[in-house]
Design a protein around this nucleic acid. Structure first.
Lengths: 201, 201
DNA sequence: CAGAGACTAGACAGGTCTGTCTGGTACCGT
DNA sequence: ACGGTACCAGACAGACCTGTCTAGTCTCTG
């Protein structure tokens, strides 16, 4: 009875570590990183300070873990999207559709990575490197889908889609979310409608 | 002789206040708002603490003043751009051209307003209201120019140009600035090339 | 010349921050 | 039965934060 019961997750993710990470993610995203102190995290996570510093020797390490997990979740979500038998073009639109839906949901406060970067000026900082990694992934995903669609200008158009993504999340957080979403839809249509013409250099 | 000599600016902007504002602007933009303390500002501005609190009773008021001034500067720059005898279309492209040049310059760290908003979660906060005001102005400018260009879909396309602007500054700050700039150029071409078709609702 | 207001210099209060350390409990595999 | 490890509770150090206050200088104005 006191043995390991069926599905209890213990090895990979101990409850306290999970609680810390979940609490930190919620607070960091909702209020900003510098605005949230360690004391608040451990209190709301119901964890002792020593336990916290056992898992995350430094606040910055927790921030990196927070972003890393966020990135993993998004990658998994994107992969799950492509599981169905959809064409590359349909999958691309689905990515923006899902993103737009999230952006219109409650508590949306923009891109966690962009927001984090605003608080970490040094591009060499681990946090910024994590941000760069996530962005490189997204750009790669766009380029991959566009290539699969047979577009010869995949690199250029992928860059444009990254612009639109960043614009949509910023606009959704700061202006009107629904409007940002629909504008993005139109923009994608127009951008993809363009016959891959003279790509300047 | 001891009277007000010609061009000496004294009434509207006393040297200490200007120094505070300039120092704060440089530090806030380069390092983030929460990351910069009052003590640091007064030291680098060479101003006494009492003087600082005389001009800005609260740090938040200084932040608002910083953004307000930034907004005024951008509005003035945009107006100066339209002074020449250019068509609306040319002026629109010029706006993005100048913005792109700044984004490629040294010390560029993204949009001051977006970055500030990342540190102020409450949309009702004066800082956020200032951000909203600035964004409303830019959107209005876009719509105005597009209307002057005779586009029937000015509102929709203006929204798209706002997306592209936000995407460009984010991309320039986080990825490759020159690339973000050139991608934006292509994107604008494609978006404006689209024959203002069926605007969804 | 007198007084008001902007300025300098810096001590101070009260709070919050990150990170360390002590001390003690409970469960684990061996 | 035992040692290691994860955990809890909370005091503590030292730095830094915003904002106040005292005390005195300088300059312009009436």
């Amino acid at each position: 009875m006191s043995a390991i019961v069926a599905g209890t997750p213990r090895k990979t993710a101990s409850p306290p570590r999970r609680r810390i990470l979940d609490t930190a993610a919620a607070l960091f995203y909702a209020e900003g990183i510098r605005a949230v102190g360690i004391d608040r995290i451990i209190t709301e996570a119901g964890v002792a300070k020593a336990t916290f510093y056992h898992h995350f020797p430094t606040k910055d390490l927790l921030v990196v873990a927070y972003l890393e997990e966020m990135s993993l979740q998004q990658r998994a979500a994107a992969q799950a999207l492509g599981a169905n038998a959809l064409t590359a073009g349909e999958r691309l639109l689905r990515v923006f559709d899902v993103l737009g839906e999230i952006a219109c949901g409650p508590g949306f406060r923009g891109c966690a990575f962009v927001n984090a970067a605003a608080e970490y000026p040094d591009p060499e900082h681990p946090v910024r490197r994590t941000v760069a990694g996530h962005r490189a992934w997204f750009r790669g995903l766009m380029e991959e889908l566009l290539t699969e669609m047979g577009r010869p200008d995949a690199a250029v158009t992928a860059g444009i889609l990254v612009l639109l993504r960043d614009g949509m999340v910023a606009g959704a957080a700061l202006d009107d979310a629904a409007e940002a979403r629909s504008r993005t839809r139109v923009a994608i249509t127009r951008v993809l409608a363009a016959p891959a013409e003279a790509a300047a250099s």
